[in-house]
Nucleic acid binder design. Structure first.
Length: 208
DNA sequence: CCATCCGTAAACAATA
DNA sequence: GTATTGTTTACGGATG
């Protein structure tokens, strides 16, 4: 397989049921006022006058929809729950990620049909504290996607690149939670706040 | 053709 | 001094 090439045409064909269509993601992201999505989400996202708009590239709202629609309920119709957002925070959270990981396991040797943002998100979501040191993110990815164990080391750079670029990931000082050996922790605060309003998480995040 | 998204590489600074 | 981590920039491919 020539997955190493990166974005091979198979990418799309390979993730018909998994990621559905990435095209939708872009659509979502493009329609939503990015900054607001992150800051104050559902709320009316009409006040993006305050934001500079540089977050369009960093918004991962689509990620939720995508994840939830494809992994949780098996489809956009997902009407069983009032809001798919609940699943991600609720008990289903783990299963969502597990499902994703399971999908990944199908083709252990091939490049996972997930973007780095998604991989990072899954790793963080699976952690008990919803936060992970970079090192552990590496570890999670390696554990669930052995493909990277044999892949060039550049993927780690990509992970860090995504962590920095995507404002959905927030860096917090260590020592705030259970993370002890890590230097820094990446926390998905905006993401969770956007859809689930996690007061607890907010408390964990050091307001610098 | 253009805009956007994603992956990758690289350079550099900060920190442990 | 070294390794790791974090940030930033740039480029090219893929897609709508």
């Amino acid at each position: 397989m020539g997955p190493i090439i990166g974005m091979s045409p198979d990418k799309k064909a390979e993730s018909p049921g998994v990621l559905g269509d990435l095209t939708g993601l872009r659509g979502v992201c493009g329609t939503l006022p990015e900054a607001e999505c992150a800051a104050s989400p559902l709320a009316t996202s009409l006040d993006h006058s305050s934001s500079s708009g540089d977050e369009e590239l960093t918004n991962l709202n689509w990620l939720h929809e995508n994840l939830l629609q494809n992994f949780t309920l098996g489809g956009p119709e997902a009407q069983s729950s009032p809001s798919p957002l609940f699943d991600i925070e609720g008990n289903h959270s783990a299963s969502i990620i597990s499902s994703a990981a399971a999908h990944a396991g199908e083709s252990v040797k091939s490049k996972p049909p997930f973007s780095f943002s998604l991989l990072i998100y899954m790793a963080i979501e699976q952690s008990p504290s919803k936060s992970l040191p970079v090192k552990d993110i590496y570890g999670w990815i390696l554990e669930h996607f052995p493909y990277f164990s044999s892949a060039p080391t550049g993927w780690k750079n990509s992970v860090r690149h995504n962590l920095s670029l995507n404002k959905c990931f927030r860096k917090v000082e260590r020592g705030l939670g259970k993370v002890s050996s890590a230097k820094l922790v990446i926390l998905l605060s905006r993401l969770t706040n956007t859809f689930m309003s996690y007061p607890e998480v907010e408390g964990v995040v050091p307001s610098k």
